[in-house]
């Protein structure tokens, strides 16, 4: 069968399933230029190509928000489901019960996961549904023009939202506590680390959380606070009144060494501190992982890398003892025979 997407591009290099990197693209992004989310989409495309994924064997899902729009912008030959705000986990659970042989990438944001979807997020982890769950975390509500999300720093000042009175929710900690066995944090601009984590996450037996710091180019601030998402003085008006969103490049950083502390300058000149985990860090201890996250929060750093790893818990499909995908069962396995109805009703006579 001729592949309509590759047939006219003979010079392109094909992977072992006969697809070029372009075949893993989606529709053109409608997010702001320079948005960290676009960097993550690019890495998903790259990883799909490098892992020789068959696009039809994967589904992509999301909730609502800027991040949740992004599944339209990668893996155009995979089925996609842009769900309701905070409800992607339940949809993914259902879809992967119907066909547990599918791979799945879910994309969510800090509002979608940390606020409206917190319950479903934690129950997804608890059930260990086999999928990659990416949070594109920028600490701010972009589509509704710059309110705090639940992951924003305590004490943060934003021009639109004011002063943040409440402590941040650390989604990695929440995931660990809920029973997730693959918990990683990264930075959208660290292409190599994002790719490596994505590849590992795709082969994990249960839910794999990637909490990826993904700077918002439009609703940022210009002070030097450790986590400097915010609201720029140049762009104080709500987005729908903005006549001009300045063009920005996606931030990319060189790969980090183990244990390295790197300060990265964001679009507005603010700084973020990333700390790559030490090479001798042991991610298999739950309490140590929680402690490490707590310490990082106290010092204003974001540790990046695989923070917690435990492959021992069975996935939901394993718990349910699923065999043939439920969506592919033949009619005779879905409807018992006439005689079994008659026999069953005997007990009710």
């Amino acid at each position: 069968m001729e592949n309509p997407l590759t047939s006219e591009r003979t010079p392109l290099k094909l992977n072992t399933v006969g697809l070029s990197k372009k075949d893993y693209d989606g529709a053109p992004s409608t997010l702001c230029k320079g948005c960290g989310h676009n960097s993550i989409s690019s890495q998903i495309v790259q990883v799909g190509y490098e892992l020789n994924l068959r696009p039809h064997e994967l589904i992509k899902l999301s909730g609502i928000g800027c991040s949740s729009k992004s599944p339209a912008y990668f893996l155009g030959m995979s089925h996609g489901f842009n769900a309701l705000h905070g409800r992607m986990p339940s949809v993914a659970t259902g879809a992967l019960l119907a066909n547990h042989t599918l791979k799945a990438i879910g994309v969510s944001g800090d509002g979608d996961t940390g606020s409206i979807g917190m319950g479903q997020f934690k129950h997804l982890m608890r059930r260990n549904v086999r999928m990659v769950y990416i949070v594109e975390n920028n600490g701010v509500y972009g589509l509704t023009k710059g309110q705090f999300s639940a992951t924003a720093e305590e004490g943060l000042e934003l021009k639109y939202a004011g002063h943040n009175e409440f402590p941040p929710i650390d989604l990695c900690m929440e995931a660990i506590v809920a029973g997730c066995g693959f918990v990683a944090r990264s930075f959208a601009g660290d292409a190599k680390q994002v790719r490596e984590l994505l590849k590992a996450a795709l082969s994990f037996r249960g839910t794999a959380l990637l909490d990826i710091i993904s700077p918002c180019v439009t609703f940022n601030n210009e002070d030097d606070s450790p986590k400097s998402y915010g609201y720029g003085t140049k762009h104080e008006k709500p987005l729908h009144e903005l006549g001009f969103i300045p063009y920005a490049e996606e931030i990319q950083i060189a790969p980090m060494e183990p244990g390295e502390l790197r300060t990265v300058r964001l679009h507005d000149g603010s700084l973020i501190s990333l700390r790559n985990l030490d090479s001798d860090y042991d991610p298999t201890h739950k309490l140590a992982a929680l402690e490490r996250l707590q310490r990082a929060q106290e010092t204003g750093e974001f540790i990046t890398g695989l923070i917690y790893y435990n492959p021992d818990r069975p996935s939901l499909a394993e718990v349910e003892e699923l065999h043939t995908p439920l969506a592919q069962l033949p009619p005779e396995q879905l409807r018992p025979g006439r005689e079994s109805l008659e026999a069953f009703l005997q007990a009710y006579r």
Binding site: I59, F81, A83, L84, R87, P89, S90, V91, A92, T93, G94, A95, L96, L97, A98, N99, L102, G119, Q120, H123, R127, P325, L326, A327, Q328, L334
Partner: peptide, 22 residues
């Protein structure tokens, strides 16, 4: 599946129906 609430119960049903389960 016993869901965490009716929102999730409906979401699981939608996801499953979309992917071809009854």
């Amino acid at each position: 599946i016993q869901a965490e609430d009716e929102l999730a119960a409906a979401g699981i049903v939608m996801g499953a129906g979309w992917a071809g389960a009854r």
